[in-house]
Design a protein around this nucleic acid. Structure first.
Length: 481
RNA sequence: GGCGGCGUAGCCAAGCGGUAAGGCGAGGGUCUGCAAAACCCUUAUUCCCCGGUUCGAAUCCGGGCGUCGCCUCCA
């Protein structure tokens, strides 16, 4: 039984799909007006893991994630660069998808865009107006929040408090400061679509109500997004959809914690090393992906290069074990002991962790314990080692199906660990001479060469029979002052 | 000011009523000419503070303090 934390009820609930054996998911996507950054990757990676786990548990999953390809920020950006809104959106949508592919994210089954859903949006708004849930004023259309008695139920606000706190500047045209725009009049130089209320564009919230129901039906199982979207976005979405359908649309509201960036002086201006394509140049794609899964999805992550680096280091142990066992096959040896049951039980424990509100942090802990136990048994050698190795391979493969920490993903980022940087001739020649010196016992000279190479950016590892040169690189992007 | 999180070893982080997962780091060890790499072992009598409930609390309740998010565009 899978349990999921529902923001609406503030408790974990058993997952009870509307249609037996199927799970429908809608996740709020991005507005492609700037580079994709680490914060955008979290919901994508988290939902990717959730989806893979649901599939592993036998559900047929239908997953929709939108692009908000028309909005004020996009219009502003287009004005700055002198491009069309479509061109700006297309560029950043492509970048986003490139980054997601590198992170091993299975694309959603549908990625609807607002601009492809205009007539449905206009119809939806028209219905709300016709039924008095909304009103038009000078080409704008507003939702009448006062019509919804339980407005505020998701975010735990009540209308009186909202009014008292009223930071919402009363807009001239609104009947009530809490009313929000379903449709916004477009000025002559802005993109717009013809509608019964004149030329305009959709408000921010309406798209999700329309597209979720269009692709998943008037009721669906899970609605995701960042915790920052709870108010006003999801609150308003609930108001619209429930006004339209007369019943709740969403079974379970699932919100991921944010990636906060205070330590890297994050602002919307970016350019500080947290852009995904930039990060992917300096860290393993698998490390970046799983760093976001190393913490429970509802816990906020205070991003730091150090924490990411530490995680990558630890992940290397899992990857090293995989390298060691991936060629092993089943054994005919009949061996066993307590360790056999431990290794055998891995997948059960791993999946149980994920059943519990998708606890990827605990799932990873199981992986590390699997590897440690396997190391212990393998150190003893013999048939037990072969059997333990094979079981570990099976376990890691199963875990990797969901968490995705092994296969380096194709993409702009060469995988840090697997990349074979070309060793220059002068280095290999020096290494060869040094090897002879070592065999002759001239260690003092050999040590000096090692030191000199280190300063030149090459680390030397002396093995039993040969020495290797490893490129030393900065482990993270240099930060601008 | 209102609403919602969070505060667990040097750092990151699970656990959310039954007696502290996991990772990094650190210390010790195996291997090695040494070093590195790799691997093994060790590393919180205790969970921000003060009260309370309970046979029993990191976990529940009340009150503080700190911190983050939202209330305006944000994943």
């Amino acid at each position: 039984m899978i349990s999921v934390y529902n923001t609406l009820t503030r408790s974990k609930e058993p997952l009870r799909p509307i249609v037996e054996g199927q799970v429908s998911i809608y996740v709020c996507g991005v507005t492609p007006y700037d580079h994709a950054h680490i914060g955008h990757a979290r919901p994508a990676v988290v939902w990717d893991a959730i989806k893979r786990h649901l599939r592993r548990r036998g559900y047929v999953v239908r997953h929709v994630q939108n692009f908000t390809d028309i909005d004020d920020k996009l219009i502003r950006r287009a004005a700055e660069t002198g491009e069309s809104v479509e061109a700006v959106a297309a560029r950043y949508m492509a970048e986003y998808q490139e980054a997601m592919a590198a992170l091993g994210v299975i694309p959603p089954d549908f990625m609807p865009r607002v601009t492809d859903n205009l007539s449905a949006i206009i119809d939806f708004v028209g219905q709300l107006v016709a039924r008095d849930f909304a009103y038009a004023r000078d080409g704008d259309v507003y939702f009448r929040v006062g019509r919804m008695a339980d407005y505020g139920k998701l975010s735990g606000r009540d209308r009186e408090e909202l009014r008292a706190g009223a930071r919402v500047e009363p807009q001239e045209n609104k009947e009530d400061p809490q009313d929000f725009a379903l449709w916004k009049r477009a000025s002559a130089d802005e993109p717009g679509w013809e509608s019964p209320w004149g030329r305009g564009r959709p408000g921010w919230h309406i798209e999700c109500s329309v597209m979720s129901s269009r692709y998943l039906g008037p009721r669906f199982d899970l609605h995701g997004g960042g915790i920052d979207l709870v108010f006003p976005h999801h609150e308003n979405e609930i108001a619209q959809s429930e006004a339209y359908y007369g019943h709740p649309s969403v079974n379970v509201w699932v919100h991921n914690g944010l990636v906060t960036l205070s330590s890297v002086k994050m602002s919307k201006s970016l350019g500080n090393g947290v852009e995904l394509l930039d990060l992917l140049r300096h860290y393993q794609a698998t490390a970046l992906r799983t760093y976001l899964l190393s913490v429970h999805y509802r816990t906020p992550i205070e991003f730091s290069f150090e924490a990411l680096q530490d995680w990558q280091t630890g992940l290397g142990r899992l990857q090293a074990m995989w390298q060691e066992v991936q060629a092993l096959g089943p054994s005919s040896a009949l061996v066993g002991g307590e360790w056999l049951e431990d290794l055998w039980g891995f997948e059960r424990r791993f999946l149980a962790a994920l059943d519990d509100d998708f606890n990827t942090a605990r799932a990873f802990a199981e992986c590390f314990e699997l590897v440690r136990e396997a190391r212990r048994v393998r150190a003893q050698g013999g048939q037990a080692a072969a059997v333990a190795g094979y079981l570990t391979k099976v376990g890691l493969a199963a875990a990797n199906e969901i968490l995705g920490f092994l296969a380096p993903q194709p993409g702009p980022a060469a995988d840090f660990g697997s990349e074979r940087q070309e060793v220059p001739t002068w280095v290999s020649m020096l290494l060869a001479v040094r090897q002879q010196a070592r065999q002759a016992g001239q260690y003092e000279w050999a040590d000096r060469v090692r030191e000199a190479l280190r300063e030149a950016g090459w680390g030397i590892e002396d093995g039993r029979t040969e020495s290797r040169a490893i490129p030393l690189r900065p482990s993270r992007p240099t930060q601008e002052a």
